[in-house]
Design a protein around this nucleic acid. Structure first.
Length: 667
DNA sequence: CCGACGATGAAGATAAGA
DNA sequence: TCTTATCTTCATCGTCGG
């Protein structure tokens, strides 16, 4: 029931997220309550500067000293005059929708009070959970998606994302966007109260949805009233409504307000992030990135409706050759990239092509609106592998790795030819997955075939073919099919033989690591354009590097690897890459990092300072919540693992900011 | 605890047909 | 062009034996 209310009803309004200035302006100058006593640290508007010289600067300082933002104070004085300080204070409190800050309490408490929670309740929760933003009952305020994004990007590397997600999942059934109303009488939030609040929401939403003829002004007034009733200040509500448009729902508005509050609070709560940065603008961009992301996400949510009607959704090319593959006509040699997508660095993102609807639209939007290139690796080797690649590499003058790998099953496994029945007409294998067929299945197939002399009945043929396709079985004897051996998978994917063998890895893990990897020839074809550009070698940031598909592809192209930073969670995979690195006598340096969470701005800054910047950022984030093979948790990009895509975005964005900052300092 | 094994469909794209 | 049939899918979970 609750889910019905939080179904993300989206209305059409112009959400101009590209306007960084406007976003920054809002995040910095919007009246956000008393939650950020040091808010003036980020206040840099001309308005504030000029007010310092005015006669009332003393009184401004007085209120700023109390924890109000300078801009807010200036506004209050402008409205009420500077004579009556009580009136000004009252106005300021009205703006913030809060009570007086308690100077002895932590910033954390102030912040939540500023959000509309009763101080009593906040103190209680903070005492119970400690000053840990991850322990706060955020789920009562945001939808799980919004919450995830906010926590994820505002506090990178802080806390355990798994536990956040667990909490989110637990509460997702009770999802609500209602903030707990500040209630001086009760001071706590009973379930009855929440229920009535939710009813209010459903009433309101259905009302606004059905009554389209209603005049905008009265509807706006109604929403404003609703928001203020919920504990937000009038100023917050009106700014949110202005930004979200006249048809926005209460859900959108509350999320917007809270996101803005959190974005600002993050600055105040974690001054660590406020370290002086080489370039001011890039720093500012860094700070607001999570917020910007939230806006992008919201915009997308709204646009989905249009996409459904306008058929603007990403659709797959047939044949799936992307901008072109070797030995096929219809090649595209030129494209215009959005300006924001241009390097440095080059980036390259990969994931399964057949993801749930809307996923690739999201991926593309988050990666600077670059159109994905969908390629099936069956044009490069004997196995299918339908993947989407979003990258900003040039696409002219690509060349393939030589020699060409075997392109058909018979070329790849010549010894199986004599056992291949005429009614099995496969010439290509299906996608190489992470699991293989069981011995019992191949035994069952053998027995079914042995029952008949010569040509088996059509029913048996159909069953056997079905299983062969499903499990990628090959014929290795009379009536005998078998799954591929790990070294055969290595060969098909373009890895050196025994790449994943030994060193303590189990057979199951070999299949798993290989099944999750790049097809080298495909990726190398795309990377080939870099060879002329980096004759002296390349600095590579390899996220979710797995068994080192990107590294192997570059190496096979003859592009020297100077400095490689590989981020990979699985120890067996890190060992495989390290082992390959040593076996191939690499001259460069390989840096292991276990978790993408470790890669925050400071760490990246340090790495970039050491290497002079990354030339290429590669990543294929987990697909297990996207692939059709997943029976249980095909949850899309918000799934437990596939959400790591947003880490790719985060890190890529950081790299871009830091490198541009560094560059402008040098030049 | 680890590794092997078997059971567990739905969502879309694609092909075929009307 | 629209409907229908066919095909494919970087997987997860519980159990069991060691």
């Amino acid at each position: 029931m609750v889910d019905n209310n939080s179904g993300g009803e989206a209305d059409n309004f112009d959400w101009d997220t590209e306007d960084d200035l406007e976003i920054d302006n809002y995040a910095i100058s919007a009246p956000l309550g008393l939650s950020t006593p040091c808010g003036e640290a980020v206040l840099g508007s001309a308005e504030a500067g000029s007010s310092g010289n005015s006669p009332n600067s003393k009184i401004i300082d007085h209120f700023v000293g109390m924890g109000f933002s300078r801009e807010m104070v200036a506004k209050a004085i402008e409205e009420k005059g500077e004579e009556n300080s009580d009136l000004i204070l009252e106005t300021l409190l009205e703006y913030s929708g809060s009570t007086l800050p308690s100077s002895s309490n932590s910033k954390l408490i102030d912040h939540f009070v500023g959000m509309g929670f009763s101080e009593e309740m906040v103190v209680k929760v903070v005492q119970e959970n400690g000053n840990d933003p991850f322990s706060f009952p955020w789920q009562s305020v945001f939808t799980s998606t919004t919450l995830y994004l906010i926590l994820f990007f505002m506090f990178p590397g802080e806390g355990n994302t798994d536990s956040i997600l667990e909490t989110l999942l637990t509460y997702s059934a009770l999802e609500t966007t209602a903030p707990v109303q500040q209630n001086p009488d009760s001071g706590n939030c009973s379930s009855d109260y929440e229920g009535s609040l939710l009813n209010d929401f459903s009433d309101f939403d259905s009302f606004s949805e059905s009554e389209e003829i209603m005049s905008p002004s009265s509807e706006e007034g109604r929403k404003l009233l609703h928001l203020t009733k919920m504990g937000y200040s009038e100023a917050e509500a009106s700014v949110a409504m202005e930004r979200c448009g006249p048809e926005s729902t209460i859900e959108e508005l509350t999320d917007f307000i809270c996101a803005a509050q959190i974005a600002k609070a993050a600055d105040a709560l974690f001054p660590l992030e406020d370290k002086p940065f080489s370039n001011g603008s890039s720093h500012k961009k860094r700070r607001n990135w999570g917020y910007d992301l939230l806006l992008r996400k919201k915009k997308l949510k709204l646009e989905k409706r249009f996409d459904e009607d306008d058929d603007d959704a990403v659709h797959l090319p047939n044949p799936m050759i992307g901008f072109g593959v070797p030995n096929e006509p219809d090649r595209i040699n030129h494209r215009v990239l959005p300006e924001a997508a241009l390097g440095p660095p080059y980036f390259y993102y990969e994931n399964v092509a057949l993801a749930p609807k809307g996923v690739w639209t999201t991926i593309s939007r988050f990666l600077y609106d670059v159109e994905p290139e969908f390629v099936d690796s069956k044009f490069f080797c004997a196995a299918a592998r339908k993947r989407g690649y979003v990258h900003n590499l040039p696409i002219d003058n690509r060349f393939p790795l030589l020699p060409f790998p075997p392109r058909t099953i018979h070329e790849a496994f010549p010894l199986t030819r004599k056992w291949w029945p005429s009614w099995d007409t496969r010439t290509k294998l299906n996608c190489l997955q992470t699991c293989i067929a069981s011995a019992r299945l191949t035994d069952k197939i053998r027995k079914a075939l042995e029952d008949s002399d010569g040509e088996p009945p059509l029913g048996i043929q159909k069953f056997v073919l079905e299983q062969c396709r499903k499990w990628n079985l090959v014929w290795v004897g009379r009536n005998k099919v078998a799954p591929l051996e790990p070294d055969e998978v290595e060969m098909l994917l373009g890895f050196p033989r025994n790449h994943t063998r030994g060193g303590g890895i189990s057979r199951t893990d070999r299949y798993k690591s290989l099944g999750n990897s790049f097809q080298i020839d495909t990726v190398a074809y795309h990377f080939s354009v870099l060879k002329d550009k980096f004759p002296g070698g390349i600095n590579l940031l390899s996220l979710f590097s797995g068994i080192g598909g990107a590294e192997v592809a570059l190496h096979r192209l003859g592009i020297p690897l100077k400095n490689v930073v590989a981020v990979e969670i699985a120890e067996v995979n890190r060992n495989i890459l390290r082992s390959w690195w040593e076996q191939t006598n690499q001259r460069g340096t390989l840096t292991d990092i276990q978790d993408v969470q470790e890669l925050n701005g400071d760490r990246l800054e340090q790495l970039i300072k050491n290497f002079g910047g990354f030339d290429l950022v590669v990543g294929g984030s987990p697909c297990n919540n996207l692939t059709g093979s997943n029976r249980y948790h095909r949850d899309g990009l918000e799934g437990k693992d596939s959400a790591l895509f947003f880490d790719f975005c985060r890190i890529l964005d950081l790299v871009k900011c830091i490198m541009n900052g560094t560059k402008s300092m040098i030049v």
